[in-house]
Amino acid sequence: MAKGVLVDLTQCIGCRSCQVACKQWNNLPAVRTSFSGTRDNPLTLSKVTWTKVEHKFLTTKGTKLKFVKRQCMHCLDPACVAACFMGVLKKSPEGPVIVVSDTCIGCYYCQVACPFDVPQYEWIRGKARVRKCRLCFDPGEEYDRLGQNKEPACVKACTTGALKFGDRDALLEEAKRRIGADAKYVNYVYGEKDEGGTSWLYIANVPFAELGFPTAAKGASLFHAFHKAKTG
């Protein structure tokens, strides 16, 4: 059964524990930052920052402050996988999109293809490696959690329960149940169908467009379609 994570943005308090837990579990170094003008640091995902929480002030109807966790969405039909002609990236049956070979040539196709600006490159002596969230799936290797039936490190660290790990199908049902039970939610599960559907699902009490989620399929959707056609 494919796994996923449900993010209830109404429960996130912006504590950024997930952001630190990710670095801690995956042994990713800190980078030297300077004050970015906001509470966000580092400003973007990178080869050593696989998840981050954005602080979003919305001021159209009174002041609101929302926190949005970003990471690889682990698409059901991943454009990055479709774009990669070296077979480096793979959609696993367990759900995560992971790096499965060291044949990357650094062509940037995956980066261009991704609608969420996720894949990043690490260059070591001219050799490229794609670095991004792997949903703590590292089969047989030291960073594995998912393969051992453990939730991802970010979910484990979440203080309020805003992140919930489980089977994607069950999480989707849960998301719809929550939306049905409380009028505060916008009636939309982000990731159910967006960009061909994603393993990470989000529910919120403000429209997703205001939170910076790509809402209309970019050109990237072509890659999704391509991936779907390729994999049947």
């Binding site: 030297r32 004050f35 640091n41």
Partner: peptide
Amino acid sequence: SPWLVELMPEVF
């Protein structure tokens, strides 16, 4: 702590 300094590097 490097990870925390990265998150909040400077006084404001």
